[in-house]
Design a protein around this nucleic acid. Sequence first.
DNA 1: CTGTTAGCGCGTTCAT
DNA 2: ATGAACGCGCTAACAG
Lengths: 344, 344
Amino acid sequence: MAPTIRRVAELAGVSIATVSRTLAQPGKVTEATREKVLDAVRQTGFVPNRQAVDFRRQATNNVVLLVRDITNPFYLEIYRGIEELAFANGYRVLMGDAGYDDARVVRYVDMVRNRQADGLILMTGWIPDSVPEASLPQTVIALELIEGSTLPAVAIDNRKAARLATEHLLSLGHRRIAHVTGPMRLVMSTERHQGYLDALAGAGIAADPALTHVGDFHFGSGQAAMRQFHAQGSAFTGLFCSNDEMAVGAINELRSLGKRVPSDISVVGFDDMDYALSSDPPLTSIRQPRREIGRQAMQMMVDLLAGKALASGHLEAGVELVVRASTAPPNASSADASRVTSTT
Amino acid sequence: MAPTIRRVAELAGVSIATVSRTLAQPGKVTEATREKVLDAVRQTGFVPNRQAVDFRRQATNNVVLLVRDITNPFYLEIYRGIEELAFANGYRVLMGDAGYDDARVVRYVDMVRNRQADGLILMTGWIPDSVPEASLPQTVIALELIEGSTLPAVAIDNRKAARLATEHLLSLGHRRIAHVTGPMRLVMSTERHQGYLDALAGAGIAADPALTHVGDFHFGSGQAAMRQFHAQGSAFTGLFCSNDEMAVGAINELRSLGKRVPSDISVVGFDDMDYALSSDPPLTSIRQPRREIGRQAMQMMVDLLAGKALASGHLEAGVELVVRASTAPPNASSADASRVTSTT
DNA sequence: CTGTTAGCGCGTTCAT
DNA sequence: ATGAACGCGCTAACAG
């Protein structure tokens, strides 16, 4: 059995309270007793039982990280950011996978009530109706805002970012720009679509509904979008996809359809994942500071649990347009090519 | 404040022992008292304080999952497998990032000693010398074996799997086959290289050292390998890369060098990541049952903590060759093309 | 500065 | 079948 504080106390010839103090507030004991105690600690190899400490202190130092889909590679850098700050602050991160399942969310949310964890970082984009927001006192939202929620949150401004992406295409001279969205039940997706529309409106271009395809953030829907545009004969020279995976799928399909990127069609993605850099051609994309978002979310949690008033409810993380080889000015021949498609 | 068992007891007019029993062993109390108690539980919304329960039981139900690099996308499906079984068995998973840092490993390993966690799942491929294996009683190794370790483990047979990949190329008729390895300090990488050599030897082909390039599992080293082979004029029609990321990098560079895949060169990857399917052409690869590896690792942990004797020390997960469009028989013209390269 | 005492919330004897 | 009492290991009053 591991040695307890009692064993150390008798070995040092002091009370357990003194041992506790020596370890927690060394300044509060005499030099002499401190040495006796530390000696005994070394001899026994005593390490305080954290479970007992936490129980006594009524704190677990656990934080639940609940995500919608644990296998989403987008989260990886966020995991790192959260783990970094948790580690540095003595917190532990419990991984939870919501998996589109209300029951799972409830069980993880309950961990805070049950005192299995002190706080909850939500990256699900939704909470079940059965969980009133008022029952989430120690909660921070990250990445995906929840509609109508007033909980403290850190995220990017998706609308503004999508506008930035679209304006890049506009500034290159593109006039007919298509958009592949994410699932429209996600706030994130509707926001990005709005940003796309904002940019067009800002340039005085009427949006053509036929140039918007509702996707699902996966590779296949990028391909499907291109097939649909091709089948309906839609002409465009610019394409904005709401994430990189769909952008890569789109490029893949465009190649099959005999289109070149960027000479025929310029493509902008969103997220700046690793494969944006390694795709062919390297993808122009919107970079989110993912690791920083993770760090900030955990920092907010630390502050929240420390009882500090949060500086601001919502924290907006900045984004950046990363221009690579998938975008270029449109040229006459490519415009022709597109037109040919449209009349086929 | 959350209601305690004491509050429920007085509301039901019984002792706390009876409340405890009613919840744990309902058969041991009268129908009548059971109803009184359950009524009181409902009224108060009582939920046992898990921290207190765990403390009393001397168990935390936490398991530390320590990985070498938390951002490795390969782990994603393993995370899911582990979380699934943990959730189903009432365990919680603490995420730990080793990050090539001994001190971090030590701190996470210590969590078991400190009773912050009951067990440890190691996916680091190494433990610091300062941590003797004997001090890891509740540990399971997953995915990456640790040299010389006898701890229970679940992993694939990398050597056999690499042989399978190489034999696929041989069976298509390829005779000159190149190999891009992972970092050679990882057991995994040396094993895969051995498997490659095994296959060649089995086919009676002398291995050409000039056809092996030491990579680092990243996109760039796949590209670099192709540039090197090209520069030194090495001729080959088959290529086996020790992971998919390098394979995609290689294909990318081959395209720049004017080679077609698979008509000029056939490429086999390893891991069967999502982007194996979405690359151009879709990649032939070795599929590891990643989710299943995660599930089995957690199952071993559950058994271990339950005091069950583990069925077997090591558990071998099976692999599968997934044939896609990046491999084909060599043909005369492609052999010519390669030879041209070699004489340039 | 140090020791004594009193719990944190619960499960679990041992009586009854 | 039920209740009283104890203690898991530690920290935080309060005395001295």
